Amino acid sequence: MTLKKGAYVALALPLMLAVSSAKADLLSDIKTRGELKCGVYSDVPPFSSPDPQTRQLVGMDVDLCHALGKQMGVKVVLMPTSVEARIAVIATGRADVLIANLAYTKTRGKQIQFSDPYYVAKEMLLVKQANGNKTLEEFKGKRISATKGTTSEQSIHLKGGKAVTFQDAASAFLALQQNKVVGFVTNTMTGIKMISQARKDGIELAMIKEPMALEPIGVGMKRDEPALLASVNASLKTMDNEGVIDHIWETWIGPKTEYKMVREERVQPLSSLKFEPLE
Rank of each mutant, 00 (worst) to 15 (best):
P46A: 04
P211F: 01
D51F: 02
D116F: 05
P52S: 04
P50W: 09
A121F: 08
S155E: 02
A170T: 15
W252V: 12
L278W: 00
T186A: 11
E138A: 05
A198S: 14
K75V: 14
F166A: 11
M212C: 14
D51E: 06
K122H: 08
K70N: 12
R263I: 02
L273G: 05
L68I: 12
E242H: 09
I253H: 05
K5G: 12
L236A: 04
T32N: 13
V77L: 08
W249D: 00
M189R: 14
A213Q: 11
M221A: 06
T32K: 15
E153I: 02
L36R: 05
F275E: 11
A91D: 08
E258S: 12
K23A: 09
T190M: 15
V83Q: 11
P269Q: 09
K200I: 06
H66A: 08
L3S: 15
L13Y: 13
E258H: 06
P216N: 07
K142A: 04
E137I: 07
V219L: 06
K4R: 14
V181P: 07
G218V: 01
T186D: 12
V62S: 00
G254H: 06
K180T: 05
N233I: 00
K260G: 08
L27F: 14
V58C: 04
M60A: 13
D246G: 05
P255V: 11
G220Q: 08
L270Q: 06
E225R: 00
Y259G: 05
E84N: 10
Q111Y: 01
S49T: 14
D240F: 03
D224R: 07
S21K: 10
H247M: 12
A175K: 07
E123F: 00
L270N: 07
V164D: 10
M1S: 15
G109R: 03
L278E: 01
M16Q: 11
G254E: 09
F139N: 00
L78F: 11
V182P: 01
E264K: 13
Y41H: 09
T54N: 09
V182M: 11
L125Q: 04
A88P: 07
A22N: 09
N133F: 14
P277G: 04
G34P: 01
M194T: 06
G141V: 04
I192S: 12
S48G: 13
L205N: 11
I156M: 06
I90W: 08
V182Q: 14
A213D: 13
Q129C: 03
M221E: 07
A100W: 00
L136R: 05
A234R: 03
L273Y: 03
P226R: 05
T135W: 01
Q129P: 02
Q111W: 00
K110Q: 14
E264P: 03
N233H: 02
V120Y: 00
R223F: 01
F139G: 00
P269C: 10
V83R: 03
Q71K: 09
E210P: 10
V44D: 11
E242I: 03
T151C: 06
E264G: 03
R199V: 01
C65R: 07
